[in-house]
Amino acid sequence: MTEVSRRHLLLASGAVLITRAAQARAPGEAASPSQRWGLLIDTAKCDSGCTACIDGCKAEMGLTGHDRPLTDAQYIRKLTVKDPMDGNTHFLPVMCQHCAKPACVDVCPTGASMKRADGIVLVDRHICIGCRYCMMACPYKARSFTHEEQSGQKPHLPRGKGTVEGCTLCVHRIDAGGQPACVEACATKGKGAMLFGDLKDPGSTIARRVAAEATTRIRADLGLGPAVRYQGI
């Protein structure tokens, strides 16, 4: 009830136009189902050699590896897709797609894989038993398993041996009114191929563009309802 009235107050005041993009929730306020955070990625602006989003993600999350690409934690993978008919290639970053109907949540035996009210899909590592069903269920290969003991973690991203992890859409930044580190890195060091926003807010840039322009979801046929949209593929 309070959430609704607060939102209406904001809408009525008109202040929402200025504050919409980045607004931290008040202390003590829970994530709200009236929001749905998502990304729009324009592959035409995604270059083959660029790894700005991946580097930005690793730095933000404190992901250190052991030079073992098969098992090192990765929240974003960069894919090359090739059209077999004409041989044209495109590049796209793939991270957790924050599905509306996440397969990882369906298969999790403990409830550790979970979807927050605002659509962000997370691993509650406090109750993750490391079974990795979610990793097998995810068609986007979005999750990693922490194989080694960790030290030097970032305070905003606790991570440790024996649990599954993946992109959190930078939930710690979103809750503080910011945007994901990959989007920021792509804007400053890349070509600004990524747009972040609230898909349920009809006035947001992302919702307006998704309404006006053709966008695709990868493996849309699976019907999982990803919150990450792509253009140009």
Binding site: P27, G28, E29, A31, A117, L122, D124, P155, H156, V171
Partner: peptide
Amino acid sequence: QRDDTLRRGIRGVKASLKDCV
């Protein structure tokens, strides 16, 4: 607190482990 913060997204309240540290 850990359930409130992680699962419900409630931040900026009393018993944060980050704040203890």
